[in-house]
Every structure is written in C-alpha cells, then in structure tokens.
Write a protein that binds this DNA or RNA. Structure first.
Lengths: 247, 247
DNA sequence: CGTCGTTTTGATCGCAGTCAAACGTCGTGG
DNA sequence: CCACGACGTTTGACTGCGATCAAAACGACG
C-alpha cells in the first residue's frame, strides 16, 4: 500500500513524470468509498457520474442473463478501472459487484477529462491499459469457448497470479483468492459443481492448494502448462520470474 | 464506398471537423494493399511496423491452441482496426486472417502517433472505439460461456447485422455474410457440425435464410429475442430501426 | 469431369450440467 | 455454550447438449 496501485500500473506501462504521478494520486484520493462484499458498486444500466477505480479488494464485472444465470466478464483487482467507458461512452452495459470489501475511488470525470487532453503520457498509459484489457477478454473467450475445464481453471489461476504479482500482492506463489467456486464458475462459464471437481484434479496433481480464501501455487510451471498460459498477452513489464527453471 | 469507413465510424462516435476527416482519409489512403481470402494479414507473434485497418471485406482475429483448434476472437469489417495495439503496445498477441479478399490500409504509425497527440477529437474517437470493442468482447464471452448454441448463433448474427448496418452495408435485413460454418463455429466456440444443425433450427423457425454467402434476416425481432440481443452495448449512434413494431 | 471445399446427415460418446442431499464452518442469538 | 441458520464445499446419480467420427451430397471451379 505504499503507492497508489493505479500509479504502479501506469508506471509499468509508460514513463511518467513525478508531476503525472502526483496528479493521478490526487485524483484518486479525492473521493474514496468503502463497499461491502457482495454489494453492487454500480448496477447495470445505471449512468453514474463518476468513473470508479478499485484501490483495495476484488470486484467483478458481470452480466445477468434472462434465464437467471450470470456471466462474470472481468475480475478487478487494485489499480483496475471499473467503468472507464463512462469517461467516454454513455452508460453502463454491465453490472459491478464487490467480491470482497473494497475501497473504491470515485474519480471526478471532468478532472479526468482534463488530464486526458493535457497529459500525453498519462493518456497513452490509459490507452495501453484499455488495449491490454482487450487481450485479457480475448483469453476469457478462449477459456469459455475452446478450453477444457481443467485448462480454463488453470489459466485463470495463472492470470490472477500474474496480475496480483504485478501489483505486488503475492508472496512466492501465495496470494489472497477471494472467489467462491460459484463465482469462479461464473467467470469461466461453467457450474460450481464442476469447478469443484476440477479444483480437486488440480490439487490431486499437486499443482495448487486452495483453502480458506488463499491460493497457494505449488507448481507454477506445471500449472502454466496445464492452462496453456503465456503471460505475454498481459503486457506487464514486471516479467513473471521463470520459477524453477530445472524442469 | 463514398466515404472512408473509418471516417464513418468516427463520425458516429464523436463530432469531427472537416479537417479531421481529411486527415484520416489521407492517412488511410497512403498505403493500401489487397489480401486474398484465407491469407494471413499478419501472423501471430509478429511485430509489423504498421497498424492495419480493414477498408473492404471481412477479416478475423484468431488464436490457435496447442491442440490445434482455433478460436476466433473478433470479426472485422470495413472501418475496423486489426491491431491498434501496435500504436501503443509491443507485439501481436493473436493472428489475423482475411476471410474474404480484403483491402487493408497500412497506417504509418508515426503519423498516427502524431494525430493521437495533436487532434483531441480524433483521439477521443479512437478511445471510444477501443472501449466499444471491449463491450463486443464481453458479449462473445457470454456467447461461449453461458448461451446455448441457438442463442449464441442468433446473437452473433444480430451483432453482425447491426454492425454492417452501421456502416451502410445492409439492405433491409440482407447482407453479405462470408463466414463458412467452420469459421462461425470457431467464433462461438463450437463445432461446424453443430453450427450446421443450429442454423437449420433458425431456418426452421423462419428467422433467417443463409445461402451462398448472403444472410437474409426474415424476422429480426424474433432473432433478437432468440439471441437475447440488445444493441445498446455496441454504442452505435445509428440506432437500429425497430423493424416491425407490431409484434 | 474430377477435385476440393463446404454443407448436410447419421450414429455414438463423453464432458459438463442438473438436481439433490450431506457436510463443514462460521457468525448470531437464545 | 449450544442451537440455529446462512453459506460454501463436497459427493452422488442421472441427463443431455454438443463433440466426435465418418460418410454422403452438393457446388464451384479449373
């Protein structure tokens, strides 16, 4: 928590001036609110005034379908925007729910607008983030469309490990993983029952241990192989250390 | 073909000055190349110098998986960028293939870079396009993850109808739809055989007629209902006329 | 007229969904 | 301290959608 997670992400994307950093930090500190776990950050279809940014905790973008089932379309961790659209598009096209208790910054859209017209470096950084997010979404399409259950689960575990590492929230293969199996299922497009059985397989293979709300990755290389995971698409600078090279 | 399709898209997104339009048009006219159907526009992992833009024809972004199967992650029609990443990120994280013969503009990245620092309106427009694309990707996740075969096919047909209409390439419910069933399957994450049977259902219900490479939508409202399609997420100005209100 | 790519049909299989119940853990209140 | 309920995980039995394999029909094209 020493620095603002957004600053950290931007730093990993572009070269920033100290002044840029200060501006971002100020923008984020303006109006910070706490949201309890399982509560909506902003409901689908709403037109909130402000752009939201996760400072602490996990949240999710989701869509509820007419038949009642839910598809999670993004997992948000500190430094992630919830609804950058609003800076630029009209209204929400998805819901936003806090998965854990979250600290959410409400960014003043006028100030944000001002920044995106004045500060070139910052704008480029935000630009990059949006395009990097697209790459994540593409991987999720593949998860749901063409990967088996084991592959998809392994892949998403690797993704979150990489992203959590990038913002400094892992400790050698271990990190908070607050998703219920139900939520994990909604993210991949399967059922909680089957997620459960899939996790058992991964455990059985000695790849991971998931207890309480903490994920411990026992064999990162093995897990990446299972999930066909290659970190490149995340476009992170901090490079994902290769772990045990002797395999 | 009266106007540049990118200009048309931008026009639908933001207010442009005549000067902006001229600049874009010039940028696109610089270096136009033809690509034959089924040929790669640029292979996965490459680092092409230029950003590509489809001027004519259909193309697709795809990923080949280790087991050999393919997932298409985006369908590109005139006015769509193939790899806007390159303006801003390092290297391709997916392949690009022409589905029909295509005219592809190679944009000079320096000039593009120049524009995105000078012309505020254009930058905002491109910004919007990237975020709108995210919304499309989210729908594809839902297609693959939580929709039945019929729903997913209906949804993607509606999507392409809306997008083709937005650039003026439909004629009351009829438009070129050059995808093979194989390709359609790769886009939704199913098999060609099952796409075939699914299309038969849609035909049987009198919703569409797909012959040759032309799609005729017989009952747009019915199709939208089947696919749970709501055009809002595409963020198009041209509003998708409601068709037969008497339903 | 043969070839190649695509669409169509049929038969069988299996992964994951569905339904249902038991179990463990935790927080709350009696 | 225990009973209770809420929530999440786990297990079992059964089902079904869509995959897989294979072959035939169709159509465009050289």
């Amino acid at each position: 928590m020493r620095t603002n997670p957004l600053v950290r992400k931007l730093d990993a994307m572009v070269e920033l001036a100290d002044e840029d950093r200060a501006d971002v930090e100020a923008l984020c500190a303006q109006d910070v609110r706490q949201v309890e776990a399982k509560h909506d950050i902003s409901p689908d279809g709403a037109s909130p005034k402000n752009v939201h940014l996760v400072l602490q905790g996990w949240a999710a973008q989701y869509k509820i379908l007419p038949n009642g089932s839910r598809q999670i379309t993004a997992l948000l961790i500190p430094g992630d925007f919830c609804n950058l659209h609003l800076a630029v598009l009209d209204k929400m096209d998805h819901g936003l729910v806090a998965l854990t208790r979250c600290m959410v910054a409400h960014l003043d859209s006028e100030k944000l607008d001002q920044i995106t017209t004045e500060r070139t470096a910052l704008t480029k950084g935000l630009w990059r983030m949006a395009l990097a997010d697209q790459a994540v979404l593409r991987q999720w399409i593949i998860n749901a469309g063409r990967r088996t259950a084991v592959e998809a689960v392994a892949h998403i575990l690797c993704e979150m490990h990489a992203r959590m590492t990038a913002i400094g929230l892992t400790e050698d293969g271990t990190f908070d993983f607050p998703l219920t199996q139900e939520e994990l299922a909604d993210a991949i497009g399967m059922t909680a029952v089957h997620v459960n059985r899939t996790l058992q397989k991964l455990r059985g293979d000695g790849l991971v241990e998931l207890t309480g709300r903490v994920l411990m990755i026992l064999d990162i290389d093995g897990l990446r192989r299972k999930g066909e995971f290659e970190a490149g698409y995340l476009h992170l600078r901090s490079p994902m250390p290769a772990a045990n090279m002797a395999a």
